[in-house]
Amino acid sequence: MAHLNQQTLLVFATIIFASAVFLHLTRKNTSAVRLYMVQSSAIAALLILSSFDRFSPLLIVAIVATVAVKIFIAPYFFYGLIRRHQLKFSVNTYLNTPVSLMVIAALLVLTRSDFFSALAVLATSGDKMLRLAFATVLISLFLAINRKGALSQMIGILSLENGIVAFALFAGLEQSPGLQLGITFNILIWVIIATVFASMIFRKFGSLDVTAMKKLKG
């Protein structure tokens, strides 16, 4: 993606990163899904941009599939889940917002630190974006840790995946479209299964709070 303006890329990277941060801040499940859609859209845009220099029909299919899964199907499932179980506000965290933000800041500092410079060799277009993408990965992981809601965890994981894809794009690590398709298909299945499970869990436990599941220990 060397032909693209650094500035443009940084904007996308910031969008991806910011939506991950906002995922931490939001109190509503619906807005979380929306934030995910924003993030996915940014990824999709990046994908499309990157496809300009090596056009192939299969790639188009792959991109379309990705867009479909990430922007439409996954949110659709999530919305369905929210609708069915009236889950609009069921957001519960371990750390309160300020502390969460501090942790995020710490993670951000971490990605700025020296050890990360090794990854800079990957950067075909400036390591700023890479660092942001990596920060997204970590912050999304932190989301899965911090949130007690099953839905938030799922979104966290998907956001993590977005972060990785973004990282790959910024580092110029595109895979062949066939593989891209496979991965997308995988994610689709994952989203379906996870949604079904979330729904089943709601039926068994009466909420999507994962901390209710603590029978298995020791």
Binding site: A144, L216, K217
Partner: peptide
């Protein structure tokens, strides 16, 4: 270690 809390596990 095996506390039953999935958040802890991810942590």
């Amino acid at each position: 270690v095996q506390s039953g809390n999935i958040n802890a596990y991810i942590l």
